[in-house]
């Protein structure tokens, strides 16, 4: 019986052959995943021959699998590190393809209107120094708002996360004297935890759930989770001192403002991109915005693969941004033309 099973499997494999339906394999950022699925689906309608398969394994894993040559492209929130880029200089293409934001969500029963918060206040909360919701520093940002004299529960990620990296980078850039560079990273020791008022949650899901369940709590999640879970989110004071809500427009404004300090070619070193977009200048800019990148090779041994990836990038630059789903923001036109340039490079014309 066992022999029959094996014979059937082998025969089946031989008949089904090795002609896999997904010619192109990508892996990486789980933030990018839902948007990528929409693009892949729409692109397949435009060019039925090509199936792109994107696996949400996480940005770090995606980059590793790309560097090991297991996948054709990586999706990654942070761009390649400078050292990796140096090693692959001229052989690797990076372009930001979508913008996201970190929303600061809160749960204050009975509070009407929106709450304004700043980097200093958030740093104070996560340091454990700002203890009550009616702290003078919070009241100063929210004149006329009835704030309760309740202790603040500070919720943060318990797992290693790019969201934490962006959020702590914002705290450091907006309040460098309070939040030292040593507290910037994907996973940090939260000072507020030692006061007993810090709570960890796994994933965006976990943080959103903790904020929902704990009255008088505050937390940070990717913007699309804030939108879809219906939690209240704060307006954040930006570099110019203006309080702005996260939205497509304010995130796009931050990216526009960051352009001046970004590279001009997909072949350049993008490792400083987050420094540029987090706490970007501009009155309209939302201060905790971030990119998600596609990382590709300049040359693919299989010409069909190069053609398919090139036409996907070209489609993305010209039509992809008609299909941006809720919670994400499209990249500015200058970056779209860079995506088109990447399409030419990958296609062999650059």
């Amino acid at each position: 019986m066992y022999a029959a099973l094996v014979a059937a499997l082998v025969a089946y494999t031989a008949v089904a052959g090795t002609g896999c339906k997904a010619a192109i394999q990508g892996s990486g950022s789980s933030f990018l995943y839902p948007q990528m699925e929409v693009w892949v689906e729409r692109f397949r309608e435009a060019e039925p021959g090509v199936v792109i398969n994107y696996n949400p394994t996480g940005s770090g894993t995606g980059q590793n699998q790309f560097l090991q040559g297991v996948v054709d492209f990586a999706g990654s929130d942070p761009p390649l590190k400078r050292a990796d880029w140096e090693r692959l200089r001229g052989r690797v293409v990076q372009v930001p393809v979508i913008l996201g934001a970190v929303a600061v969500v809160y749960n204050i029963p009975g509070l009407r209107g929106h709450l304004n918060l700043s980097g200093e206040v958030l740093a104070g909360i996560y340091l454990g120094r700002v203890r009550y919701w009616d702290d003078p520093s919070i009241r100063a940002l929210n004149p006329g708002v009835e704030l309760p004299h309740r202790e603040i529960v500070a919720v943060h990620r318990s797992d290693s996360s790019g969201t934490t990296n962006v959020f702590t980078l914002f705290l450091h850039k907006s309040a460098p004297s309070l939040w030292p560079e040593g507290l910037v990273g994907k996973s940090i020791e939260w000072p507020v935890d030692s006061t007993g008022r810090g709570v960890g949650g796994k994933g965006n899901q976990g943080v959103a759930e903790q904020v929902r369940q704990n009255p008088y709590s505050v937390g940070y999640v990717e913007y699309n989770y804030a939108v879809k879970t219906g939690l209240s989110y704060a307006w954040i004071v930006n570099r110019e001192g203006v309080s702005v809500p996260p939205s497509r427009e304010t995130v796009l404004a931050a990216a526009e403002a960051a352009l001046a300090s970004l590279p001009s070619s997909p072949l350049d070193d993008w490792s400083g991109a987050f420094q540029a977009i987090v706490y970007a200048p501009g009155r309209e800019s939302y201060p905790i915005a971030s990119f998600s990148f596609l990382i590709l090779r300049t040359h693919y041994p299989d010409p069909a693969k190069a053609r398919a990836l090139s036409s996907f990038l070209h489609w993305l630059a010209t039509r992809g941004y008609d299909y941006v789903i809720e919670g994400y923001a499209p990249v500015p036109p200058a970056i779209r033309s860079m995506i088109d340039e990447a399409a030419r490079i990958v296609g062999g014309g650059g």
């Binding site: 997904a22 789980s30 696996n55 989770y225």
Partner: peptide, 30 residues
């Protein structure tokens, strides 16, 4: 590899699995 958009007929191709789908889709906000 999680090939979620098309049915793969061959074991030599990337594919999806039910528990992997649960794990990855349940984590999204949609």
């Amino acid at each position: 590899g999680g090939s979620r958009a098309v049915v793969q007929a061959s074991p030599l191709c990337p594919g999806d699995a039910v528990p992997l789908l649960v794990f990855q889709l349940a984590q999204t906000p949609y």
